[in-house]
Structures are given as C-alpha cells and as structure tokens.
Design a binder for these strands. Sequence first.
DNA 1: AATGAGCGT
Length: 282
Amino acid sequence: MAPVGRTDWAEEEDEDSSLQLPQQQITKNKDGTETITTYSIREDGKRVKTTRRIKKTTIKQIVNPRVAERKQWEKFGSEKGKPVGPQTDTTSVAENILFKPVAGWKSRTEDSREDEKKKNNLKDAKIKCRICSGDHWTTKCPFKDTMAPEGGDAPAEMGDEQPEGPGGLGLGSSSYVPPHLRGRTGGGEKMGGKFERDDLATLRVTNVSEFAEEQDLRDMFSRFGHVTRVFLAKDRETGMAKGFAFVSYADRSDAAKACEKMDGYGFRHLILRVEFAKKATT
DNA sequence: AATGAGCGT
C-alpha cells in the first residue's frame, strides 16, 4: 500500500529537479564577447552551472548562405521557443579541428635524438655502386644484368647455411628478397629476364578519398575475389594519401569483374575510377 | 592529375 497523498517517488523527483533549474543567461561583455551561463543536472543528480564565453561571428563570415538561412529557422520540438543559436546545454559547440598529419611522430619521443643521428649518418653515407662505381645503389646499376660486382667474392655472408633467399631467386650472393618478390610460387611466370611484379590482375584505383585506408579498399574490393594486395599511395614524408591505390587479385577474371563494378562507384563523396594497372615505375 | 616500396655494399 502506498502512503496517502504520495505518487510514484521517481516521478516526484523528476519534477522537482527540472522545475528548479534557472534559465540560461547571456550577458554581453565589453570586448564584444558573450558569456553564456547554463544550468543542468548531471546523471548523478548534482546540479551543474556552466559558463562559456563566446565570440560571435557574423554568420556570413563562416557559412554558406543556405546554412546561414537555416540558422534563422524557428526552433521546433523540445527546443521550440528557444532563441536563435546553439543552446549550450543541449548542443556542444566545438572549434574546427585542423588535421595535420606529421611525419615521423612515432620517433618523436625522448630517444628521438638517436634516430636523428642515425638518419644523418645515413644521409651522409656516400653511395657507390659495386659494379661500376657510379653514385647509385648496386641494384640500380644499368649494368647489373650483364656484369657481376667487382671482386667476385663479396664479403662472406654471416649465415652461410642459406645459399639462396627464401624466394630462391638466385640474386648472386645477396639473400635479401624485396617484399614484392617474397613468397612467390611462380604461377605462370616467365622467369627469364627481368623481374616484374605480376600486375596482370592489378587494378589502379584513382580518385580515392584521402581519408580512405587500405582496409577500406580491401573491404570494398574483396567481394569480387581474393585480393592479394592493396597498396594505397601515400606521401612518404607527410603520410598524406595521394588519392590513388592499387588492388591486386589472385585471378585476373576477378579483377575484371571488380573493375567493371567498381569503376564509377561512389566512395566517401568521390567517384572511384578503376582500371587495369599499367606497369610499375621503370 | 596521379602507375606502388623495400634493403643498403
């Protein structure tokens, strides 16, 4: 039995607290700013007074005309009758956030000095081709296909148990295998002559949003078949996406399907352009 | 508009 004259206790408390809240106040300051004071109740029941100082800007300065007009609309719903502009108790007003990617943020910690040193050493180190003594890397040498490095017996490798790298590509005494050549089983590959990336099933995707990530592309493209590689071009200095990407498939037929379906596909307010890739850098 | 990165003697 409920005590006489008592309604639901929860209801009562609700009414109490909401009725006692003072109205929002706005005071104009001399410097042209305004101070807005609002009152609200937190989840734990505590009453909170919030003051904010804002600087008013002419609407024309900051928004396009359609948005400006929208700002003058009469409020509706639970905000009905409230004055124009954001009510700070229901709307949080934030500053514009500028997104500035920074290169090398990972190493910008206490031990970043060490990193700097290493970098400089690398930069100062002179490059001399072992084949022709030119100022390029041996691997970039125009004669590397026809000539062996001078001296023949290169400094003995530490781990001699591995006569050839995991890829078994037989690049002289070096066991290094560049990432794109690793783990190949040679499916229908002409092994004579130069090594070329298998771009037969690779699509070039352009007009890619700078906010896209490789995973986004993988998600979109893997419905057409097994995606073997996604490369999203980024500026190596800034990390900014350059707006194009490469997507490789295990099967060229899947690539063809994807090409047909994804060319013209809308992604993040941009229309993707998809076509088969031509050969890589020469 | 744009055709990829990686190692390092």
